[in-house]
Design a protein around this nucleic acid. Sequence first.
DNA 1: CGATATACGCTACGACTCGTAGCGAAAGCT
DNA 2: AGCTTTCGCTACGAGTCGTAGCGTATATCG
Lengths: 215, 215
Amino acid sequence: MVTAMPDHTTDRPGRSRTGRPRSAEADAAILGATREALVELGWSKLTLGDVATRAGVAKTTLYRRWAGKNELVVDAVAELFDELELPDRGSLAADVEGVVLQFAALLARPETRTALMAVVAESTGDEALRARIRSSIVDRQKRLVLQGRQRAQERGELPRENDPETAARTADLIFDVVAGAVVHRSLVSCEPVDAQWAHSFTALLLGGLTEAART
Amino acid sequence: MVTAMPDHTTDRPGRSRTGRPRSAEADAAILGATREALVELGWSKLTLGDVATRAGVAKTTLYRRWAGKNELVVDAVAELFDELELPDRGSLAADVEGVVLQFAALLARPETRTALMAVVAESTGDEALRARIRSSIVDRQKRLVLQGRQRAQERGELPRENDPETAARTADLIFDVVAGAVVHRSLVSCEPVDAQWAHSFTALLLGGLTEAART
DNA sequence: CGATATACGCTACGACTCGTAGCGAAAGCT
DNA sequence: AGCTTTCGCTACGAGTCGTAGCGTATATCG
């Protein structure tokens, strides 16, 4: 799931092939410095000037590539979410528990905690930013739900869907429940997402799914 | 659930009874102005000077009462959450659907959307702020879960718990699932929490609960 | 009533960040 | 070579921050 062209760049005139190309190392250094500064300073105290200094680039270079703090942080965090995988653990319950714990581990990292919530908050009044978050972060992770369901259906643990529209709605519901519960547990309630919690949660979720499939 | 003493005030020396008391009207004006400014400007562009102007008070008055933007916004938003109620609709499913829709309506208001996420984001690096959020907002709403379960047990829809520790864990789990799913659906996925979704979600949740109770 | 104590409005201040403009130099492509 | 774009650097006005100082307003206490 790699974008062929870096999507963070603002309008580049015609994607011309002449002239000095942008430094890829600078890109990596900036995104890394952003995550680092986010951990130390938090969202509100994060300044682009500081990021530029840490990355070893000029402040103007930052403004040439990103429109502002929001866009920069979205790109800096989006990279982290691509780590999530869905290894086949043999059963639907084990798969769900595994991805829950993976997601929790990702949210336990300070840069993820801070950045994710801050950007979502900022996006409530900015439609363009919201769209960027959805395409860069949220929608990419829905693949985990679809993948897990397909595996479960192949194993016979879940019935195959007849109506594709219902199937899509159910997938969305599951995605919101899983992601929402884990985020709320770890960031709002500030309680650990350990193996015990993951087990209880999985039991609740799968119980609800099989119960619903029965009717 | 009204606190006898305003809890937002920073250290007041001995709560002495002499001298001019703080204006309660100013308090209300400031908190209202904060919510208003939050809607128009968003979190990052919200300035305390602007809030002071809108509220018709001096900027210094703001700094005398609140330590900073975070604390002010937490108090401004905490008031909104006290609206949530759990009217008795006759069945557990109806009660859950009702509170889900209420919560969604609260999150649909722009000031709530913006403020809640922003404050949570800021709190990831600030233990004092985290504690303030929990006591002012989160923990207060857990009453809804406890209340709903008690009613369901009285109706015979749910079995009574034997182990109080397990009961507490289950309540926490339900709280995180409900609040997390609704927040994620409306703020991250940006999809409406309508009657249909609330119905599907309730079926999933209650299905999981009865299934889990069976084993 | 006067004395005391606190809150309030107002102004001013240094420090900081913002986002942009302008320049010369560097680095690629034809 | 010549052209094009990026990069680092410096400087700038605008805006915000949080605080200090001062005079005034409003409460309780003796």
